[in-house]
């Protein structure tokens, strides 16, 4: 009903109902409190209006009991809302393991997205309904923010960092994709459409060639998967010359790296996640692997953010191959 009246956005993801429930409860709570205050003010204003100059107020200093009541009750309610909001947040922050992976790079002023299988899009995202989707975000220049109101999710895309956002669409259709962090001239033009499709249609779409019907949304003609493209880059940039399986190689082997604990020079250990891989490529000296010389050159500025995401995906795929 509220949606039809134009007071609430469409619910199109598994969490949107939960977010709305919290929202509506807070709206209710706010109504109770603000109408309560308003009613008290109105009643006092009328009942105790000054009828004549002789009308004197009855002097009351306060009441400890009341102070306690109106501190403790709001505090308890506030803590309740905190817990509710926090548990929802934790859900929003934990992508399910089986999520479909998408890579997104924000840049002034467009969203560049790439599917794991290799298909690329600009300012458009096609996803299947009923399947969790995890988007890894970064930015090539300033901060942007990935915002899909119908899914009730938002995450900043920060240059030099990876962040993730996940959602599972529950409805097919087209929804707004906004940039929510101010990023300059065309900030309000940095918008796109999320198209939610039936899984079969999505598969068709993924494998569709650069044929007429799709020309508007699909970009580039790179048929390689993201990891494969990363493999090409890995060889093209000469990474393989140092990172070899053979003994005496200058750099450590990367085959089992992703997800493992790396011992660093100085005794610390660090989890090799996406952010670590990215950092190792653009700023190799930030964390030196124990037992190796700091000879790796920085690739900062030589590889685009999309290229970096492909390299990361490639290194991840090596570990996945080892597992299976």
């Amino acid at each position: 009903m509220l949606e039809r009246l134009g007071l609430m956005p469409t619910q199109a993801s598994t969490v949107s109902g939960d977010v709305d429930a919290l929202y509506l409860s807070l709206v209710g709570l706010s109504l109770v409190f603000s109408l309560g205050i308003a009613a008290a003010l109105a009643y006092f204003a009328i009942a105790y209006r000054r009828r004549s100059e002789a009308h004197e107020a009855e002097q009351i200093h306060g009441s400890l009991a009341l102070e306690l009541v109106w501190s403790i009750i709001p505090f308890t309610i506030a803590m309740g809302i905190f817990i509710w909001g926090a548990s929802l947040f934790v859900t929003l922050k934990r992508p399910p393991d089986n999520a479909l992976e998408i890579f997104a790079v924000g840049k002034q002023w467009m969203w560049k997205l790439q599917h794991l299988e290799g298909r690329r899009e600009i300012n458009a995202l096609h996803i299947p309904v009923g399947r969790p989707v995890k988007v890894t975000l970064t930015s090539e220049d300033v901060i942007h923010s990935f915002f899909v109101p119908a899914f009730r999710v938002k995450q900043d895309a920060v240059p030099g960092r990876y962040s993730t956002v996940w959602f599972e669409a529950t409805k097919t259709g087209s929804f707004h994709l906004f940039c929510a962090e101010y990023c300059g001239t065309e900030h309000s033009g940095m918008i796109g459409t999320v198209t939610v499709m039936e899984p079969d249609d999505y598969q068709d779409w993924l494998s569709a060639e650069m044929a007429g019907g799709m020309a508007g949304t699909a970009q580039g003609d790179d048929p390689l998967s993201v990891a494969a493209a990363g493999g090409e880059l890995f060889r093209g940039l000469g990474c393989h010359t140092c990172h070899r399986q053979t003994a005496g190689a200058l750099g450590p082997s990367l085959t089992e790296l992703f997800g493992s604990q790396v011992s660093l020079r100085g005794g610390r250990t660090v989890l090799a996640d996406e952010a670590y891989l990215r950092e190792s490529i653009v700023d190799p000296r930030a964390k030196l692997v124990d037992g190796y010389q700091p000879v790796m050159p920085t690739f900062q500025g030589q590889v685009s953010e999309e290229g970096l995401m492909q390299l990361v995906a490639y290194i991840k795929s090596l570990a996945a191959e080892q597992d299976s």
Partner: peptide, 26 residues
Amino acid sequence: IGLFTIGGLTGLFLAALGLDVHVHDT
């Protein structure tokens, strides 16, 4: 008093993590 009450109460919406994700920067 009226407006500050509304301003304060809507601050709770923004402090509530899962809800702030949606309304932040809007």
